[in-house]
Design a protein around this nucleic acid. Structure first.
Lengths: 98, 98
DNA sequence: TACACATGTAATATAATTATTACATATGAA
DNA sequence: TTCATATGTAATAATTATATTACATGTGTA
């Protein structure tokens, strides 16, 4: 399940944690996480792909273009029923994906 | 988070799905999943490490030793609060792990 | 004894994920 | 013009995860 894969990495969990406080722009996130931007982009991409976060460009007062990311609120009741419903939907027909 | 990593693989989700119906022994699982036992062991190990499943040996009527695995019921309210509580506990001190 | 069906693991190969390095562009301030 | 701070990506390296192959053991039945 894509969402669970997205949440299976420590950096991505930290990103979610940070963005749950407030939106942040890329360089800012990289600094707070202490990782390089290329690596951060990789993780942001995976989170964005499953719609956990969402980015938008903005030109700040000083003229710099910033790309802000914000968290989309979510709630997944992760238990055996949830999973078996998911796996059943796979082995049978898969109407929708993800 | 170990549990999320354990649940980030399709086979492991299927295993959870199958075991949510009833306990099964190793060869039986391998057949139903259509994977080799060595591969199955790998996945079972990861699920067992995080206590999602639990194995026990049993000698069946016909004398064969079987190792049954059963699912431990679980419920993780996976949302941003859950994650940020987790990540905060990391960056500060980490009383407990997992 | 040979076969079928259980158990398990060590060694290796393959694939996927994660991380780094080296680029390139644009804006405003010094 | 040079520096600092934003943006972004392509190519490669390193590490982990996944998968396969080849073994080995034990029990009951034919």
């Amino acid at each position: 399940m894509k969402v669970l894969e997205a949440l299976s990495n420590p950096y991505r969990l930290k990103i979610v944690g940070l963005l749950s406080e407030e939106r942040k722009f890329v360089s800012q996130l990289a600094k707070e996480l202490n990782i390089s931007r290329p690596l951060l982009y990789l993780h942001l991409k995976k989170l964005e792909e499953v719609k956990l976060i969402e980015g938008s460009y903005e030109i700040s007062a000083n003229g710099k273009t910033k790309r802000y990311f914000e968290l989309n609120s979510f709630h997944i009741p992760l238990d055996e029923r949830f999973i078996s419903r998911y796996t059943s939907s796979l082995t049978v027909k898969r109407k929708t994906d993800s």
